[in-house]
Simulated assay, not measured.
Amino acid sequence: MALQKTFSLLLLLLQMLLGLGLVQPSYGQSMYQQFLRQHVDSEETGGTDLYCNTIMQTWGMTRPTCKQFNTFIQADIGAINNICRNLNIQCKNGKMNCHKGVVRVIDCRLTTGSPGNCRYEGRGSSRNVVIACDGKPPVPVHFDG
């Protein structure tokens, strides 16, 4: 009986997770996932050089070349998705699908190094960010600044 209850709960959880994924636009799903992989780290609150050196290497941003700069948003995905509900503004590429919001971020800037041995400076702050959003409902697909 307990095993059946556990299985039912797991099945319900799986259905909920799939349901959440289904509301995302299919054409933008890969861009949304890429945005999450490159820019969202809701678990960390640091902003140090050690953080940047570790995360840039762990997340594969030091090969085949050292990525010059990356921003990590330190907010839960719900707060980031809510930025897409803010007033539309013009993106750097001229499209009108960008939105501005204040979140905690860590900016990682390359200081020295070669592929696999890149060194970064980290700086944490709360500031305005601009993200491009697409889909129905709109979800973040690009960090614009």
Rank of each mutant, 00 (worst) to 15 (best):
F72H: 00
F72M: 14
I73W: 00
I73T: 01
I73H: 11
Q74D: 08
A75F: 03
D76P: 04
G78S: 15
G78M: 07
A79I: 05
N81W: 00
C84Y: 02
N86F: 05
N86W: 04
L87E: 14
N88W: 08
I89S: 06
I89H: 05
Q90Y: 04
Q90P: 09
N93E: 00
K95P: 13
K95W: 12
C98M: 05
C98D: 06
H99R: 14
H99A: 10
K100V: 09
G101I: 03
G101L: 01
V102C: 08
V102T: 13
V103I: 02
R104K: 12
R104Y: 09
V105Y: 00
D107F: 02
D107W: 07
C108M: 08
L110Q: 02
T111G: 01
T111L: 15
T111P: 01
C118W: 02
C118E: 00
R119E: 11
Y120L: 12
G122W: 03
G122Y: 03
R123M: 08
G124I: 01
S125R: 12
S125Q: 12
S125G: 10
S126F: 06
S126V: 10
R127C: 02
R127T: 07
N128M: 15
V129D: 05
V129Y: 05
V129K: 03
V130Q: 06
V130E: 12
V130M: 07
